[in-house]
Amino acid sequence: MSRPIIATINQNALQTNLSIVRNIASGSRLWAVIKANAYGHGIKRVWKSLSSTDGFAVLSIHEALLLREQGFQKPILLLEGFFHPHDLRILHRYHLTTIIHSHWQIQALKKAHLSSPLDVYLKMNCGMNRLGFQPKDVRNVWHQLKALKNVGTLTLMAHFAKAQCIYDIMKSMQRIAQSSNGFNCTMSLANSAATLWHPRTHCQWVRPGIILYGASPSGDWKDIASSGLMPVMTLNSKIIAIQKLVAGSKVGYANNYCASRAQYIGIVACGYADGYPHHAPTGTPVMVAGSMTQTVGSISMDMMAVDLTRCPQARIGSLVELWGNNVKINDVASVSGTISYELMCALSSRVPVKIT
């Protein structure tokens, strides 16, 4: 038999989460963000479950073309825009919407020979200092783009660095309002956190990402526990061995766990080569045979140890939930000093995936 680890993708959860976001931002159209291979869930696996979205937002032309090849005909937004002037021919051919965040892209648009215009998102830098034009320059850039024959619809876009913070949202919204005064333009501002918690940011388009996959953008599951959002990915494995420890027994590399009393531990077929966080400390939550327990010792490449003190029913072959409906991925990430986004994206290609 094959190694028992498996990731399960719940299509119903995806559809439910999309519906919940639609209800939250009922006056807005929706870009479903599926960059990074749909946050590790697999674009090919999930796009149909999200196909009622108004459009998909991706990172690369490769992801966009994959969607077109799969039959998706609605708008697709390139979140980093294009990377070379010759990319514009591909954008035109496949009807892709591009972000413009740099002056060189404006010049490329100006010089391109296109038979019809492209839809464009003008990226404003609201203080995150990754991509986009400074607020003081937005008005000038807006009018430059408006004057180009290769530009069709023009939308103003921004991204919030601290979308959980109402004070930061208020400051950013003030900058946006000042920079766009008189434009009467379509806007796309809200990421997952802003979509959930700041209705004034919804405007014409929202861009939910992590919440579509059932995790909290704040890193704390409690912040979305009452929302109805459902975890989409469950990572399961099984107990493949059981060890009986006496007081003073050490566990794992570096022997950084020492049993203070006699106890049983289970060895689980899952490690950092599967995408589980190497830095997960002793005490990281895990469920074994329906009972909540915790990891002990270091995470190895292919295995980990879990405490069976609270799981007297555990046997070799008992089911282990690493994250999913019971063990929240936010909780695993928080204890491990990382974020749920990273855990989803880190799922290894060696882990089999089942769609339900």
Rank of each mutant, 00 (worst) to 15 (best):
S115Q: 09
T309D: 08
D302F: 12
A112Q: 02
R175K: 15
E69C: 06
M157E: 12
H103F: 09
R207Q: 13
S226M: 09
Y257M: 07
D54S: 10
R93E: 15
R200H: 12
P135S: 10
D220V: 13
S249H: 09
E63M: 14
S334H: 13
G127H: 10
A314I: 12
Y121S: 08
G209E: 02
D274K: 05
Q174A: 09
G266R: 07
G271K: 12
A346I: 07
T155M: 10
G40N: 00
I90D: 11
R310N: 13
F82C: 02
E80R: 06
N181M: 14
I355P: 05
L109I: 06
Q11M: 09
L212F: 08
C311Q: 04
Y167D: 14
V58G: 05
S180C: 09
S2M: 11
V306I: 11
L65A: 11
T53K: 10
W31M: 04
R315S: 06
S349L: 06
Q144Y: 10
A147W: 08
I90K: 09
G275Q: 03
T155A: 03
G297I: 11
L156W: 04
S52F: 11
A314G: 12
M124R: 05
R139K: 14
A215C: 07
N12H: 10
P135V: 09
P277S: 12
C185D: 02
L308S: 12
H86D: 14
A177M: 14
S226F: 13
A147V: 00
A194K: 02
N325M: 04
M303N: 14
S28V: 00
A108N: 00
R45M: 00
M157Q: 12
K222F: 05
Q134E: 15
L196A: 03
L245E: 03
N150V: 00
S216D: 01
P199C: 06
Q15V: 05
V335M: 10
A333D: 07
G297M: 07
R89G: 09
I166M: 04
S318P: 00
L79M: 15
